[in-house]
């Protein structure tokens, strides 16, 4: 049954990296489409647009981070081999869910906000500071989910 425990943890890691990565891909894509539209008018905005496009990408990193934590926890990344029972494996799986779910949805929402912010800097480049803060408001919830995932992973005794 040890194998099942480890596989559950692997499933958790896969969900964390897979879903938040997908969300980020969609979010960055939405922002990128908007950015490309702006740059047909003014290619000089590349730097700003890239900055705003990159913002919904952090969820993917958070997911990857959680996934690494999860497989590190069950000893798949080198180090001593640990035995993981089914309950511990399930625990790791559940602990990965906050960032998998919130990462997916928040990245898409943040992508839309970034796209709107990109439209904003097209007309008012002097307001870049405000344009960057709006998508960051959305990211808060991904940060909170990441925090919860890490705390949960940390609290599972293996």
């Amino acid at each position: 049954m040890d194998q099942l425990g480890i596989m559950l943890a692997v499933l958790g890691a896969a969900l964390a990296a897979g879903f938040s990565g997908s969300g980020s891909a969609i979010g960055v894509g939405i922002a990128g489409e908007s950015g490309a539209g702006i740059m047909t008018e003014d290619p000089g905005k590349f730097g700003l647009v890239l900055l705003l496009q990159a913002l919904p990408g952090t969820q993917g990193i958070y997911g990857l981070l959680t996934a690494f934590f999860a497989i590190l926890k069950v000893g798949l990344l080198g180090g001593a081999v640990v035995s993981v029972n089914v309950w511990q494996g399930l625990g790791v799986l559940f602990a990965c869910l906050p960032i998998a779910i919130a990462g997916y949805y928040s990245a898409i929402a943040q992508g839309k906000t970034s796209a709107a912010s990109i439209q904003m800097i097209a007309k008012r480049p002097e307001e870049t500071g405000k344009a960057v803060i709006l998508p960051a408001m959305v990211e808060t919830y991904a940060v909170l989910a990441l925090l919860m995932s890490i705390i949960l992973l940390n609290s599972i005794q293996i």
Binding site: I61, L65, V143, L144, L146, L147, I150
Partner: peptide
């Protein structure tokens, strides 16, 4: 303010 912990942890972990 819990983001202070989360982002700090994220940096070290990455």
């Amino acid at each position: 303010y819990s983001r202070l912990l989360a982002l700090g942890l994220a940096t070290s972990a990455i």
